[in-house]
Design a protein around this nucleic acid. Sequence first.
RNA 1: GGCCCCGUAGCUCAGUGGAUAGAGCAGAGGUUUCCUAAACCUUGUGCGCAGGUUCGAUUCCUGCCGGGGCUACCA
Length: 641
Amino acid sequence: MSPVGTRPCSPLPLRDMPATRTLLIEAVRDALDAAGVEGTFEVVVERSARPEFGDWSTPAALGLARVLRRAPAAIAAELAAHLEASRVPRVRAWTVTPPGYVNAHLDDRTWGAAVLAAATDLETTGSVDLPKATAGKTLVEHTATNPNKAAHIGHLRNACIGDTVARVLRRTGHAVEVNNYIDDTGVQVADVVVGIRHLGIEPMPGEPFDQYCSRVYIAVSARYETDTELLERRRDVLREVEEGGNETAVFVKDLARRIVNAHLATMRRFDIAYDLLTWESDIIGLGFWRQAFELLRESGAIVLVENGKLAGCWVMPADTAEDDSDDDTKVLVKSDGIATYTAKDIAYQLWKFGLLGRDFNYVPWEGDPTLMSTSIPARPDAPPAHFGHAQRVINVIDARQAYPQRVVQRALRRLHHEREADNSIHLSYEVVALTPAAAAELGVEIEEGRDSVALSGRRGIEVRADDLLDRSIARLSANARDAATATAVAAGAVRYYLLKFSLNQIIAFDFDEALRVTGDTGVYLQYAHARAAGILRKVSDAGEHLAVPAALHPAERELLHSIEAYPRALTETAQALSPSLLTTYAFALASAFSDFYEHTPAIVREDDQAVRQFRRGLVAATRATLADALHTLGMAAPDQV
RNA sequence: GGCCCCGUAGCUCAGUGGAUAGAGCAGAGGUUUCCUAAACCUUGUGCGCAGGUUCGAUUCCUGCCGGGGCUACCA
């Protein structure tokens, strides 16, 4: 470390402190204007490919060469000269490298000070410099696990994605409402009812209710193969549930209620929560579907099929002139008069946008003051509700349901709700599958020629969410300072594992990978945070102005770059609705911090007060930024592990 | 058949219209009188194939090959 200037840097108000990249884009655009470049031209400014080129580079001259009919290097030189003359803040020098890149070299004192000031602002006020969020509420539906079995890691992937998307949107200034849809009138719940009533399977002593139902579900599914009489019983159950007001309906509702509580408990372990539970039976019971049906029928969006294999069904035909097949005809009301899942989903989607002209009644959920539930009976003492009426709806549902989701969107269009159809987002993600190793560990046969096996609650091919977390806790307990820390870190580790994959990538689940505690894992991020917090405990804040030394260690510069990139990472994650962008960012930040930690001298031993203060400030900025990223990912940011 | 997704290093995966495509794991070797070694360092001949668009393609387009999913009066 070289000695440090003590020139104080005056803190800038946040709104006058754009990201360096934004500043450079504007500067380059000005330079292009000055050079007489006409027309709209997207200015690209990105981190330089190699440190010796500079900090930021633009290939603008490359694209302009053809338009201007001049050599790229000559254009670049002209741009660089103009930029040099215009004295762009935070930039020390501009250079040109072949074949025509213009590179900005930052002035560490002004640039570094700006980055630290922004991060300090994040720490003290929690504010981040972000573009203004779109107006109106975003409704996120996620989890929606069928209430007939214990949640497995496929359901958990859904919940982690949905919860993180909701967090990211809130963090970027959006109003968000989270719904968890309970499909309590569907086939899967009926399966368990049939099993309990007709198979005589009893709970084992101490067996959790959701696991008991899983067992019944597997058993009854297997029995259907040989016992068609049971399928009749299932039809009976479904009919009685649809009609309501009978013993079966009460039985089902109670079963679903108990499973939902098990799911909520599981998800709570991962810090996943909801604003509202929406019950499919309430959509039926309160006439939502009847209302939606009338709207669809009157508009001609659905028709009654007179003959053929779909005779007696109400269907939504394919888009006109799309093709001549009936592949795209979706049955909404079966010939027995029962609405399909998709039909109820259409009614629900209309409600989400406030287009149905009806509302649920609401009650607090089983004594949880933070969670509400839809209800058929109104409660006079219920607090005023403000659910639905969203501007944008995000349904977190796996990729296999793309088709019914398209039907829901199409229904909105057929009802001339074009804007709402455009704002209906199926946030599709791929499923979780088991690697051969994981399958072997579970004693599951893997099909010849396959390199993975799909999860299936029905066949008992699954890793329960609770079990995975328990195993992760067990793995971490040996090195954690206490049980609470192990639990918090384990939940974060599992979340990170399920979030770090791109949404359209099938997760090839592997126990070793999911439970690993080194490398690109949630544990690594949390450990980095604890390290930063540890340094801050040992190096007190002298309360002096932060001044950036004239010469920084490369690891310090990289760390500053990583810290500065946070608002953009958040914004892009929110824009793309893709949590893996944020995990990738967080890992890069933690890596940059580890590099700094390992390759610069210990701060506790630093005698130069100014250097000491700066480096402490750098650690404080890192900690605040990493903590914010971790919390946005739904992970704990422990000060000690 | 139609529609959607995937194919990048031994394995699991990032990545992007720009300069020499990255990380983790696995394997080998190394680092601890120093703020937590759950860390760090060294070690890598890889974008399925073929065309096209472009100053520039792993990225965009088309075709093909391989894998998966959807195309139910299930969800």
